[in-house]
Simulated assay, not measured.
Amino acid sequence: MAPSKIEQGHGRVVLHNDGYANVFSDMSATYPLKLLSPQLPSPNVSVVYMLSYGGGLVGGDRVVLDVEVHDGARLAILSQGSTKVFKARPGQRLSARWQLHPVTTQRLAVRVAPRSALFLLPDPVTCFRAAKYHQIQTFHLSKDSSAVLLDWITSGRKSLGEEWVFSKYLSLNEVWIEGKRVAKDSLLLEERDSLPGPLTPRTLAESLAPYSCYATLIMYGMLLEDTICHLTAAYTAITVFKQHAPPPLLWSLSPICEGRGCVVRVAAKETEHVRSWIGNALKDLEGVLGVDVYRRAFA
């Protein structure tokens, strides 16, 4: 039977474990989405790189990816470099429809079966000047599955003087366990043209200063017990004193599911500070994913 046709920008990943090693029963994608899976020494851990042609997404691009993990398999979804979002690709003439609605959209739907695990550990999103980006990610888990969802954004191309100068960024993350929603995190960053009355609205750069990177980390499951325990202890021990200037990095932790999961938020003046902090916070994943996969995510 011939395979069904995939819509433009759609992809699908289905991972099983046959009792000996992980096996992809489906891994397919169409432009502008591209999926790659390298060979790994561990038979029960797989990696899929989620890429885009041309080094980024442009206004009007639509990407939809469905992921399923079964039979105790462990899957890490990574990227190679930040997800760049352009208003338009250089030299490209947008159609009339794209000129009216030049929003770049990326949707991810994940289902993780019992004893299975999914680790979404991409590089951050970087929106260029005037870009509009919507990202919607949904996780459907079993009470016996495990998952890590990392969602983070940078201020833009600081080397070119672009800091928080995109037009709109919308990110929505939802986690469901056994059909019950246990976490919903929404972030909307958008320039305001005006405010009621004589007030002048602050720019995004003014509102988000002095930090240039914001991250949300959602974790759940047995494989994350040690990590959640260590972070909870570290957060409980924090003593807050009045400071004369914002610190280089801030973080917070909110437990979910009676402590079986948590939502961590991080903000820092430099993206690499956030990367380093998350890499240290998830150090226990070396024993879950293997040193090679861990280093691929946080090198």
Rank of each mutant, 00 (worst) to 15 (best):
M1V: 15
M1G: 15
A2R: 14
A2C: 13
H10M: 10
R12F: 08
G19M: 10
G19F: 09
A21Q: 14
A29C: 12
P41E: 15
S42E: 06
P43M: 10
N44G: 13
V45W: 01
S52D: 04
S52Q: 03
S52I: 00
G55M: 06
V58W: 01
G59C: 06
G60M: 07
D66S: 10
H70A: 06
H70D: 03
A76W: 00
A76K: 01
T83Y: 00
V85F: 02
A88C: 07
G91E: 11
G91V: 07
R97F: 02
V112E: 00
P122K: 12
C127K: 05
C127P: 04
H134F: 08
Q137P: 06
Q137R: 14
S142R: 02
S145I: 00
A147R: 01
L149Y: 02
D151V: 07
D151K: 06
S159L: 14
Y169E: 10
G179C: 09
K180Q: 13
K180I: 14
D185A: 08
L188E: 07
L189I: 10
E191D: 14
E191N: 06
P196G: 07
P196C: 08
G197H: 10
P201A: 14
R202T: 07
C213S: 04
M222Y: 13
L223W: 05
D226V: 15
T227I: 03
A234E: 15
A237L: 12
A237F: 10
I238A: 15
H244Q: 14
P255L: 04
C257E: 07
R260P: 03
A267H: 04
H273F: 08
H273K: 09
S276P: 07
S276C: 12
I278S: 00
G279I: 02
E286V: 10
V288E: 00
G290M: 03
G290T: 07
A297W: 01
